[in-house]
Design a protein around this nucleic acid. Structure first.
Length: 592
RNA sequence: CGGGGCGUAGCUCAGCCCGGUAGAGCGCUGCGUUUGGGACGCAGAAGUCGUCGGUUCAAAUCCGGCCGCCCCGACCA
């Protein structure tokens, strides 16, 4: 590729709409252009990188017996109605009608289509197990696209689907994906951390997310390097250690004027926040046929509510913070609320499982400017439900060995779900076993966002000058630049370019008639890992300069050996990257 | 969906308070000089000031509606 013919241009300044390093660099380097919120065009450089990422995905999926196929982006509504997700999913699903008024859906994912195919293709246990995959566009009308390429509305995902006759089969294909995803991360130059995750609307019980840890991530993770525990914060558990307390003391009403926050009241009463109980109120949505109900949750004062776990504990479909009037309707006073005086029929009352183990708490007295001291669960207040509803926090003891958890941010590059029979049962995809009995097929689904992976790689490998992409992802391996307009330099550079092309080296050649500063700046920006410079200076020293991007110590390589030496260096780059494959985490090595 | 910000040349932005000729830098075009880290001179092209309406003799500027984009939150198979 000649840079003089390149479709697109580099930008000295990033457009104001992009924020993260990855987005800014990809825009400045002419890889991508935004068309609208969450919709991007991928220019030739990005497209080459995306194809390379896809090829890595393809190789790793094929290696675990995947069969590549392709399913449509537009689906009839009926299959989504059959699975039930037509009704469960809201505005994030793109819906439209064809000319006859038939309801159509833009694919958010492809479980429904795979399951439909199972109905026509899979009849017997003899046809199982199976693993199919494709790389196909998804559309999700996110309420808010953000972070440049990290969260977009239209994107290509590699999604694979496993079909098994039982859960043992599923488990084995799940583990194969678990290991394959680590290999994919390594080949992309990304350290992906597998964390336990919430299966959510995918159904099923076991799920992992593969996270690229970065401050710009949207998800919070709780991880412990020492024990290997790693979980999405949503589902993270931790050891709960009760605060030592004296034998139960009498419940005492205390005047606490103006002490409406936990910190203030703890300070006022001379106790730590660990010796207080904190009330948080939500309105729970229990489905269309049930009225919304107040949820009164209590955690220890130093902790926060894990809303997902609370939602599961009360079996609600959704939660939102309650208004002051809604709290008052159950007989509680905001800021001084207590489970002692609440009407347990008007609210679902929940305490974290640490509360019954905590003695002599300071809690609200349900009256302005009054609290109780010496409150003890069971004697002074109770709840409908006792469940682990406290959110893990930085420094919390991990559940395996009590070592401190670290809470970090991450971007979800991939995920794996054990679906079980969630789709096959509702849609009637069955096989016949050895004894002639029909069973629903046991399914798994496994996704990796291709564009998101590129964004993460760009984020990881950016510096002040541009990107320094791994050899496996860079659109070209070598950036060849000629300096000066002397006929000899141009001639030699052209000859080297032709020789590299003839040898099959992926090279981008800056043949433009611009100043050296511009060429070097663009070379730095564009992200090719290797650079080769031909100039009168290099020629007088015996050939071309060659080395890593922005490297200070550049070797002079004679032009007659240049192609060979460049090829060898490319191989060394790949070898170095592939060394990462040697010590990857595996399913076997993760803590159980 | 709640809160905040922004919309002026291809890009980054000034001008808006205080209404009256639409600006700068970068980029682009031409000519000349220059060529190892975003060169310089001269000449030039380029904008329905997001959009619709209102106020006014007069609106980029004041007022209102709408649209779009960004950020925080809610949401996120």
């Amino acid at each position: 590729m000649r840079l003089s013919k390149f479709f697109g241009q580099t930008l000295r300044e990033a457009p104001s709409e992009s924020d993260s390093a990855s987005s800014q660099m990809l825009v400045r380097a002419g890889y991508v252009r935004q068309l609208a919120a969450g919709l991007y065009s991928y220019l030739p450089l990005a497209h080459r990188s995306l194809r390379k990422i896809e090829q890595i995905l393809r190789e790793e999926m094929d290696a675990i017996s995947g069969q590549e196929m392709c399913m449509p982006v537009v689906h009839p509504a009926e299959i989504w109605q059959e699975s039930g997700r037509w009704y469960e999913i809201g505005d994030e699903m793109g819906r439209f009608q064809d000319r006859k008024g038939r309801e159509l859906v833009l694919a958010m994912t492809h479980e429904e289509v795979v399951t439909t195919l199972c109905k026509s293709e899979i009849r017997s246990y003899r046809q199982l197990p199976q693993m199919v995959y494709h790389m196909q566009t998804k559309f999700r009308d996110e309420p808010r696209a953000r972070g440049g390429l990290i969260r977009v509305r239209e994107f290509v995902m590699k999604d694979s689907y496993t079909l098994d006759k039982d859960f043992d089969g599923l488990q084995s294909q799940y583990e194969a994906h678990y290991d394959a995803y680590h290999r994919i991360g390594a080949r992309l130059g990304l350290n992906l951390v597998a964390v336990q995750s919430d299966p959510g609307m995918m159904g099923g019980k076991i799920a992992h997310e593969f996270m690229y840890v970065t401050p710009i991530g949207e998800d919070s993770l709780a991880i412990c390097e020492e024990t290997g525990y790693a979980s999405n914060l949503d589902v993270a558990s931790f050891r709960k250690i009760p605060e030592p307390s004296d034998p139960p003391q009498p419940l005492t009403r205390v005047h606490t004027p103006g002490q409406a926050t936990i910190a203030k009241v703890a300070d006022f009463c001379g106790v730590t926040t660990r010796q207080t109980g904190k009330m948080v109120f939500y309105m729970g949505d229990f489905g269309a046929e049930n009225p919304p109900k107040l949820i009164a949750a209590c955690v220890r004062g130093d902790m926060e509510i894990n809303e997902l776990q609370l939602r599961y504990a009360v079996n609600a479909q959704a939660l939102r913070p309650a208004e002051t009037e809604e709290i008052a309707a159950a007989g509680c006073i905001s800021g001084y609320a207590s489970l002692r005086d609440i009407d347990h029929t008007k609210a679902v009352t929940v305490v974290d499982d640490l509360i019954p183990e905590s003695g002599n708490l300071v809690v609200g007295a349900n009256e302005h400017d009054w609290h109780f001291t010496g409150a003890n669960y069971g004697r002074d207040f109770i709840a409908n439900i006792v469940a682990p509803i406290a959110l893990a926090y930085d420094g919390a003891p991990d559940p395996i060995d009590g070592k401190p958890l670290r809470v970090v941010r991450g971007v979800e590059v991939g995920n794996i779900f054990q679906l079980g029979t969630r789709y096959s049962a509702s849609m009637g995809a069955t096989y016949t076993d050895e004894s002639g009995v029909e069973h629903p097929i046991v399914m798994g689904s496994y996704g990796i966002g291709v564009g998101r992976a590129l964004a993460c790689v760009a984020e990881e490998y950016s510096d002040d000058y541009g990107m320094d992409l791994p050899i496996s992802v860079a659109p070209y391996h070598v950036f060849l630049v000629s300096l000066g307009r002397s006929g000899k330099v141009k001639e030699k550079a052209e000859a080297l370019y032709s020789a590299l092309l003839a040898a099959g080296v992926e090279v981008i050649y800056d043949d433009r008639d611009v100043s050296p500063g511009v060429k070097f700046a663009d070379a730095d920006l564009l992200g090719m890992p290797l650079r080769c410079t031909v100039s009168s200076r290099s020629l007088s020293r015996g050939g071309a300069e060659f080395g890593r991007r922005r490297s200070k110590d550049l070797a002079i390589i004679p032009l007659r050996d240049a192609v060979e030496q460049i090829q060898e260096e490319i191989i060394r780059c790949f070898d170095k990257l592939h060394q990462l494959l040697e010590h990857l985490p595996t399913w076997e090595s993760q803590p159980k």
